[in-house]
Amino acid sequence: MIRLQGISQVFRSRDGARVAALDDVDLSVASEQFACIVGPSGCGKSTLLRLVAGLIAPTRGTIEVGGRRVDGPREDVGIVFQKPTLFPWASVLENVLMPLKLMGRPTASHRQRAMDLLEMVGLGGFETRLPGELSGGMQQRAAICRALIHDPPILLMDEPFGALDALTREEMTLELLSIWQERRKTIVFVTHSITEAVLLADKVVVMSARPGRIVSDLDVALPRPRSFAQEGLPEFQAVAASVRASIFSRRKGGADAR
């Protein structure tokens, strides 16, 4: 479904120096697969998502989605950011319908769908509220509905639960799993949390920082549906340990090389 080949991304920093955000990254995510990208800050995880979304163009390499080369923003992608980024002037319902309005499509026919989505994430009855009246977790749920409104086959999530407290975060993780169970999508999910990655993903991609490279690509064969109870199982621990090992071994190696 998603295939990145030899992707390098170089940014020019403010003082004119060239900063390599990504270096020769190869990655493929199968259709309806749940891929988590884990790595330290500055490893180019967010850049990777923006490349797949077509929001930025790679310096080198090619990206294909569904067999077609990505050369600009694409409508078959839903994006969830770290912050909910709902529009404070629009009601929850209007916010969920916003992508359609921005695309210039009619929204009347999607009203019911928006309501259903909100119902699914437990926001039924909050349609007319303004985002400012909702808690952070509720806002992020609405943001997920917004990303799903045009039923995109691909969902890109950039540390969507990073700004939430630990309890809400666990709740949202389970919520996302059940949404994915119900409506299969190809998901690329960026996170800092190893537990979150292992719990959610079919495959965990570990990245290193400066320049961003893929260190390892691990398949998670834990049975679904998943729950936090699995966290104590040896299989879970084994996967988490190998993810952790590849993050930290790489870090040490990088420090030695310097």
């Binding site: 923006r50 077509g54 929001l55 694409r74 992608v77 950011f81 529009f87 992508p99 921005l102 210039g104």
Partner: peptide, 15 residues
Amino acid sequence: EYIELCRSCRASRWR
């Protein structure tokens, strides 16, 4: 992020 949302929905500059 708002601008990225607009761009990912391929919103025109007017919209």
